[in-house]
């Protein structure tokens, strides 16, 4: 059935370009959802067509708007840079070459007020759809269309089934699952997209499991 009637008539969005503006706002929202802390400074490294046309397409305002929690159809996006300034968030844009990635790709390096930094790479792949490429160097495939968790854990036998068993017990359907590791026997990262959402209890249960270092909950955008 493809995307259905509303894939054709929609989405409602702030112009001028679904990939350069609406998709960029969703990337900003995704960054916000991943970082979940008060932000002090962000540097956006823009690649390809993002780098070449961001000023004329308002990609800069859309990225920042999303970061401030504005949806792709929020009419405040046009003023987002001023809003960020007022909230004393430092924003920088740098044109760069991120290598062999989609032409509309950005790396956001985000410093939170608590001093933590995160690097998030994401692409806007057309029609407002996005694809997360990596978080802090870890390959991470996410569309933002589902709630998801990112679990950092020890790279060892049986970890994934421990996590998926908890999904089964709580009757939550897994939409996609990916797993990558830094180095054999060290840290691995498991990303799970799901139908529905995890209860706070289940999140605590997962994070208390032996050899799980951290769990972050990423709301769909």
């Amino acid at each position: 059935m493809g995307r259905g009637l509303f894939g054709i008539l929609g989405p409602p969005m702030i112009g001028p370009s679904s990939s350069h503006t609406a998709g960029a706002a969703r990337i900003g929202l995704m960054c916000r959802s991943i970082v979940q802390a008060d932000i002090a400074e962000v540097t956006f490294f823009l690649h390809g067509s993002f780098a070449n046309t961001y000023k004329g397409h308002g990609t800069d305002r859309a990225l920042v708007g999303g970061l401030m929690g504005m949806q792709p159809d929020d009419e405040r996006i046009i003023r987002s840079l001023d809003v960020a300034k007022k909230e004393k968030i430092k924003i920088n844009f740098v044109k760069t070459d991120l290598g062999n990635v989609h032409p509309n790709t950005v790396e956001a390096v985000i410093t939170s007020k608590n001093g933590e930094t995160a690097s998030i790479v994401a692409s806007s792949i057309g029609g407002g759809e996005i694809n997360l490429v990596s978080i802090n160097g870890f390959h991470a495939d996410l569309s933002g269309n589902y709630n998801a968790i990112i679990v950092r854990h020890k790279d060892k036998v049986g970890m994934i089934s421990k996590i998926t068993n908890m999904f089964e017990k709580n009757n939550i359907n897994i939409v996609s699952l990916s797993n990558n590791r830094e180095k054999k026997g060290q840290t691995a990262i498991t990303i799970i997209e799901m139908d529905g959402e995890l209860s706070p209890n289940m999140l605590t249960d997962i994070s208390k499991t032996a050899d799980i270092y951290s769990v972050s909950n990423i709301n769909k955008i």
Binding site: L9, G10, P11, M13, I14, G127, G128
Partner: peptide
Amino acid sequence: EVNTSMGKIVAAPTAGSCGIL
């Protein structure tokens, strides 16, 4: 023009062609 001035439109089917339909 609403589209190119960062106003709110509905892609139909795309943002670039949003005025025709």
